[in-house]
């Protein structure tokens, strides 16, 4: 995890150790997971997933800066683009369900036994 080429890393970033970013992203990610597993409102679950994705983005950017490698940041663009596509489909599904049931509580969805 030590930076490979020290020269290229901006000083501001270097002041904060990489581990901090790792811990922060992990914390965000875990919050997201907990949200998905415990919430019953489809929109909130959805938000939690977005949180997970964004924690990944943060982590990627941190790694990318410390390694002075642009690939990580390119990946972030991909994630953002794809996540946008996913959001549109996801929201459409939630709207479809709301139209049929007037609710977005996932607990009400029990037509299929688990």
């Amino acid at each position: 995890m030590q930076p490979t080429q020290d020269v290229l890393i901006p000083e501001v970033i270097q002041q904060i150790p990489l581990t901090y970013y790792l811990i922060l992203s992990t914390a965000l990610f875990v919050i997201g997971i907990i949200g998905v597993l415990t919430r019953r409102n489809a929109i909130i679950i959805f938000m939690s997933i977005e949180l997970m994705l964004n924690s990944v983005n943060l982590l990627l950017i941190a790694f990318s800066s410390y390694r002075s490698d642009s690939a990580g940041q390119v990946f972030v663009f991909f994630i953002m683009a794809v996540a946008a596509a996913e959001v549109s489909v996801g929201l459409a599904i939630i709207v479809m369900i709301y139209r049929n049931t007037r609710s977005i509580d996932v607990g009400l969805l029990n037509k299929l036994k688990w």
Binding site: F46, L53, L59, F75
Partner: peptide, 15 residues
């Protein structure tokens, strides 16, 4: 989407 999130985090760590 949840699985994708986990997969992405894994990819980030691998990176």
């Amino acid at each position: 989407a949840f699985a994708t999130g986990i997969m992405l985090f894994g990819m980030a760590l691998l990176y």
